[in-house]
Structures are given as structure tokens and as C-alpha cells.
């Protein structure tokens, strides 16, 4: 095998690995553009493979996306650097997504005719309503956090933002504890 053939063989191996990654990502519900990107640039998309199996998003998935993208953009401003760490933000977002996923699962259960007739379904529906209200409330808190980030840029006092972040984190943790109890 000469050197040019070896180069082409390496290129083929690269594309093969990329093809497998693309296939796995496509089967996990990633958009076609993302899966196709893996064909060429699979090393940067490896973290998507480490994600657990496809999660069912709940009814708040889009609002969670919107709220956190907006908050991250506000926090990316130089005047807001260091107020909230990336880890804190990711932890809060993941906890909310988990809560949203649980509501999605309950919604699917309640959509089944046979289960809806069960006497416990009413209790489940009530619990679902309470959990949904709590997620709504935390999402409103995330929006308020953006306003407070704006105030930090003008007044420089980071304490209210940190306190609000702690409060939101505690509320989401409480939701998890209730669901685990």
C-alpha cells in the first residue's frame, strides 16, 4: 500500500466512523443536519452520544429552551460575567427538564382511555396540575432572573441574583424530592 492509498484508507475510516455516529444520532431523534454533520465532524458530536437514550420532552420543553437561551445570552454580556456559573445554570435546566419529562409521561398515561377510567387517575391529574404550576412558577422566576441580571449591569449588586438562583435551585430540588418520596 503506498502512502496515497494509506491517506485514502484513513479518510475512508474517518467517514465510516462518521457514518456510524450519524446513524446513531439520527436514530436518537437528532435533526438531519446534525446527523449529517457527524459524518464529517464526529469528534465534536461525541458528547451527544453520551446523552442517555432519547428522552420524551414534556409540554414545557419549548418554553424551557426559550427561557434558558435568553438567560444565557444575558449572562454572556461582559457586564454579567461571573454572576452565575455555567454549572449552576445547567443543573437548574436539567432538573427542570426532568420535571417536564415526568409531566410528559403522566400526560401520556392520562391520554389512555383505560387508565382514565381508574379512580386513581383523578389523583394523578391533580398531582400533575400541581407539578405543572410549580414548573410555570420556576420558569417565571427564570425570566425575572434576566431582569435582575440587567439591574446588576447598572447597579452592580449581584446578591439578589445569587439569592434568586439559590431559591430557584431549592424549589426544583424540592420538586425532585417530592417525586422521589
Amino acid at each position: 500500500m503506498n502512502a496515497t492509498t494509506a491517506t485514502l484508507a484513513l479518510l475512508g475510516a474517518w467517514l465510516l466512523l462518521g457514518g456510524v455516529t450519524a446513524l446513531v444520532l439520527a436514530r436518537r431523534g437528532q435533526p438531519a443536519a446534525t446527523a449529517l454533520s457527524a459524518l464529517l465532524a464526529w469528534p465534536v458530536l461525541v458528547p451527544l452520544l453520551a446523552d442517555a437514550a432519547p428522552r420524551h420532552a414534556g409540554p414545557f420543553a419549548t418554553r424551557i429552551d426559550t427561557c434558558f437561551t435568553a438567560l444565557r445570552t444575558a449572562l454572556a454580556d461582559p457586564s454579567a460575567t461571573g454572576i452565575v456559573t455555567a454549572e449552576e445554570l445547567v443543573s437548574l435546566e436539567h432538573a427542570l427538564r426532568r420535571a417536564d419529562g415526568r409531566i410528559g409521561m403522566v400526560d401520556r398515561l392520562l391520554a389512555e382511555e383505560a387508565l382514565r377510567a381508574d379512580p386513581l387517575a383523578l389523583q394523578l391529574d391533580r398531582a400533575r396540575g400541581l407539578a405543572a404550576d410549580e414548573i410555570e412558577s420556576v420558569l417565571r422566576g427564570v425570566v425575572q432572573l434576566r431582569v435582575q441580571v440587567g439591574l446588576v449591569a447598572l447597579a452592580g449588586d449581584t446578591v439578589p441574583v445569587r439569592e434568586r438562583m439559590r431559591e430557584l435551585g431549592a424549589r426544583v430540588r424540592a420538586m425532585e424530592e417530592i417525586s422521589l418520596a
Binding site: L25, Q30, P31, A33, T34, L36, S37, A38, A41, V44, L45, P47, L48, D51, D65, F68, T69, R72, T73, L75, A76, D77, A86, L89, V90, E93
Partner: peptide, 17 residues
């Protein structure tokens, strides 16, 4: 700012292509 504003797996999937 792009790196800070996109640090979830969903962001990576959206940004890469």
C-alpha cells in the same frame, strides 16, 4: 459569548451544522 450561551447538548446539536 457563543460558547457561554450554548452549553447544553441541544445547543451543540443545533450549532454544529
Amino acid at each position: 459569548a457563543v460558547v457561554v450561551a450554548h452549553d447544553t447538548p441541544a445547543d451543540l446539536g443545533w450549532l454544529a451544522p
